[in-house]
Design a protein around this nucleic acid. Structure first.
Lengths: 346, 346
DNA sequence: GCAGCCTTTGAAAACGGTTACAATCTAGAC
DNA sequence: GTCTAGATTGTAACCGTTTTCAAAGGCTGC
């Protein structure tokens, strides 16, 4: 049997309304648009809310209003300083504007990414933050079909029809390699992250290679190694490169973790950096300037990048003007790990 | 005007039902409890879902069923390897059992933590994962009032009436200090994390001190320094300790990042570790074994800890038997950064 | 004192699912 | 062939909000 008598309502907005002697509509208004109710009513409602310890039920709110004030983010993994950093900034920004963040991970698997996107859309997110522009076709269709705003973060691709914000990885990598070349190196190895399903990693490799090409530098294929995101793998790659009978005098790395691994292994094998070998990283993690030798690397403002991604979506959802492609500047930070090549190997 | 003719329903479960020629109840059943509908019906429904690209609307589902299959987690920050690790494990586990995770951060602020909890409860989470047992009184009340299951992770407190899972930080710290004492050190400095609103950090300090006390070792107050979670601060603390005219011969650290800072600064100031100074860390981060000298530290199985926290809540929500206090074993990992004290300073 | 306009408030219909309950159908027991 | 228990399906109320629409109330200017 349905109880229609308000006195019996024990919780929810109806209880607040009953207690304050107003309608549910007024309570809702007092919550969402305080200026729309008279001060006296508002005071009564606020008191009732306090007394009852009323907490609005977000799912009901979302169901009714068709807006969740929640964004979704899909990153390959949060167990990577760069992503953790970015997510932290994004979350902080979103919470400052009253939004929440639903965070999921894909493990660099495009199918999983699609699945997670479906999940998030099902959850009612207002928009999606994605990493890079390497996605499943089904994901693009899904986003289009459901009219979900999204942005690709960590890349800069002004020619593509999708919104993005990030640094131009290709150009940054080019800059890193150019630095090495300017120092006089002609024998340059590359240790990159895995390129599969990782357009950021591939763009960096492309940048390295373009710099070598444009300077007429030969690049034997065995001087390029791909490794996962662990120190052990990076060390192994370094060991391999350094023990080649025709070894490179410099190594450009896909990220700082790899560079650190190369640094460690070089020292272990008796090479002095930068005297015998120059090493360049990419990302400029916190500890890179503390290393001995400190690491020459590309500084990428991760926090800013992710915050801007959030800003883009929030503004778009508010119907404001937005910029589709936003470039975030990188910078080359020259520290101790790079120097001219040893005379003997020049 | 209300459209009652099913043919006009364009989306949602009613559209699927119309297309498959069944009731919404059957569609719901096919989705949530496939065995409850006949195979033929199920097939028809699944086909309709496919054709329409139907995605269930989670908020409606939550509203109606009063269950969200979502947990909330509040951590101080995700910009800390240990938390990132833990969250990653938790999330992976939850997704394997069909749960989602709402992640928020408190920045070590109890008021913010309370606010975030309110936020998460409002979002309809089925349970909450909290860090430690240092909470706002309002949070305890909130959890009790709303009957929200929760668990304190990263600590082990069998005497408290709240569920928890984690290592016994006090005992682990005791073990670390005992190792130093066993090596013969009598002059031991402590560089801990900030203890304010961080019961994990305080428990570690307590463990260090108990070990010193029980061995009758004097501990001048100026040998204890507290620092935030950055390399710079740790280095500054080390500089201070090492330049004391009466300097310690060993430093036990609240975590590996601090220990790394101490290592760096010691080397910079011309001290050789472990010959002139022994250093012990806590956490055993990935890179700790790669350092030179590699770091003696307490290994804490973070991933397992957080996964168990998830398991606890999931089981509890399923009405299964659960263990309220679960201890996760730590272990002392002895590496190169510890040795007997120099004879001259013994 | 009254018409007309704004502001404030309330009644009730959505929003998109789940689920209690009832209705129907099937098969086995007698 | 009838009866009954069990399996399958449908009907419709309900979850807790928002929001449309209309009604009521308060002012202004005449």
């Amino acid at each position: 049997m349905r109880l229609s008598n308000a006195k019996f309502v024990k919780q929810g907005i109806r209880a607040v309304a009953a207690r304050a002697g107003v309608s549910t509509a007024s309570v809702s208004r007092a919550l969402n648009n305080p200026d729309a109710v008279s001060p006296s009513l508002r005071a009564r409602i606020e008191q009732a809310i306090d007394v009852l310890g009323y907490i609005p039920h977000a799912p009901a709110r979302i169901l009714s209003s068709r807006r969740s004030r929640t964004l979704g983010a899909i990153v390959p993994t949060i167990d990577n300083t760069m992503f953790a950093r970015g997510i932290a900034s994004l979350q902080q920004y979103l919470s400052s504007v009253g939004y929440m963040l639903f965070l999921t991970t894909s493990g660099y698997d495009l199918d999983v990414e699609l699945q997670q996107a479906r999940n998030l859309i099902s959850r009612g997110v207002d928009g999606l933050v994605l990493r890079g522009d390497c996605h499943h076709d089904g994901l693009r269709k899904l986003l289009a079909d459901n009219a979900v705003p999204f942005i690709n973060v960590g890349i800069y691709q002004p020619d593509r029809p999708y919104p993005c914000v990030g640094t131009d990885n290709e150009a940054a990598a080019y800059r890193a390699a150019a630095h090495i070349i300017e120092l006089g190196h002609r024998r340059v190895g590359i240790v990159s992250a895995l390129q599969r399903n990782n357009d950021r990693a591939s763009a960096r490799v492309a940048g390295f290679r373009r710099a070598l090409n444009e300077n007429g530098i030969e690049f034997p294929p065995q001087w390029h190694v791909e490794v996962p995101y662990t120190l052990d793998d990076a060390r192994e790659a370094a060991r391999y490169l350094l023990n080649l009978k025709d070894r490179p005098t410099a190594v450009v790395c896909g990220n700082d973790v790899i560079a650190y691994g190369v640094l460690l292994e070089a020292e272990r094998d008796g090479f002095s950096v930068p005297r015998d070998l120059s090493v360049v990283g990419f990302d400029d993690l916190d500890w890179s300037r503390h290393l001995r030798p400190s690491l020459t690397t590309i500084h990428v403002p991760t926090g800013e990048t992710w915050q801007r991604a959030g800003e883009y979506l929030v503004r778009r959802l508010a119907g404001e003007q937005t910029i589709m492609h936003r470039e975030i500047d990188f910078s080359l930070v020259v520290r101790e790990s790079t120097a001219p090549p040893p005379k003997s190997l020049k």
